[in-house]
Computed example of a mutant assay.
Amino acid sequence: MRRERLSTRPSPDARHDFLVELNGQPLPGVRLTLRLVPDLLVPEPASVVAYLAEFAGFGGTGGSAGGLEALAVAILDDLNNELVPRWVEVAVESDVPLPHRVVIEDRQPTWDNPRLLGRLRLL
């Protein structure tokens, strides 16, 4: 059901690689940074807000069942299913009970853009 909250629009130009970055708060005290290189579809930012609201009852963070790792994997799976981006990176972090950051990425098997990814490392 939460995937249904994600709506998309066509990419303005699928011939070019460009970066989309969105930030949000899927759970209280948890920060999300989502970066992706779209293929044919771009996420509607307002729908990402509605999508993140669906995590209100998610299995918890920190030492709770699943934690930030499970949250990052769930978001990555949903984005891959709905958007099929060329490349996507999901970072979730919390400062409680201690600073904790999880970063996961994925890409289409035939996609590579070393210059773009090299620039991302500097951000």
Rank of each mutant, 00 (worst) to 15 (best):
M1S: 15
R2G: 06
R2W: 07
R2F: 07
E4R: 13
R5S: 11
L6V: 09
S7A: 11
T8F: 11
P10G: 05
P10F: 03
S11L: 01
S11H: 12
P12M: 00
R15F: 05
H16T: 12
H16K: 08
D17F: 10
F18K: 04
L19C: 10
V20G: 08
E21W: 02
N23D: 13
N23E: 15
N23W: 02
G24E: 02
Q25Y: 01
Q25N: 03
Q25P: 01
P26H: 01
P26L: 00
P28K: 00
V30I: 09
V30H: 07
L32S: 09
L32D: 07
L34V: 08
L34P: 12
L34Q: 03
L34F: 11
R35S: 14
P38N: 05
D39K: 11
D39S: 12
L40I: 02
L41Y: 13
A46S: 13
A46I: 00
S47G: 06
S47A: 04
V48T: 07
V49H: 10
A50D: 15
A53G: 13
F55P: 10
F58G: 09
G60L: 06
G60S: 10
T61F: 04
T61L: 07
G63C: 10
A65Y: 00
G67A: 01
L68V: 00
A70L: 12
L71H: 06
L71D: 02
L71V: 06
A72K: 03
I75E: 08
I75L: 15
L76Y: 10
D77G: 10
D77N: 14
D78F: 08
D78W: 06
D78M: 07
L79N: 04
L79E: 02
N81A: 15
E82Y: 01
V84K: 09
V84Y: 04
V84G: 04
P85F: 00
R86Y: 00
E89S: 14
E89L: 13
V90W: 05
E93G: 15
E93K: 11
E93W: 12
E93M: 13
S94H: 09
D95K: 06
P99A: 03
P99V: 01
H100P: 00
H100E: 08
V102D: 01
V102H: 00
V103L: 06
V103F: 00
I104N: 00
E105T: 14
E105A: 14
D106G: 14
R107Q: 15
Q108C: 08
Q108T: 07
P109L: 05
P109F: 09
T110Y: 12
D112N: 13
D112E: 12
N113M: 04
P114A: 03
R115L: 15
L117T: 11
G118S: 12
G118I: 09
R119H: 13
L122G: 11
L122Q: 15
L123S: 15
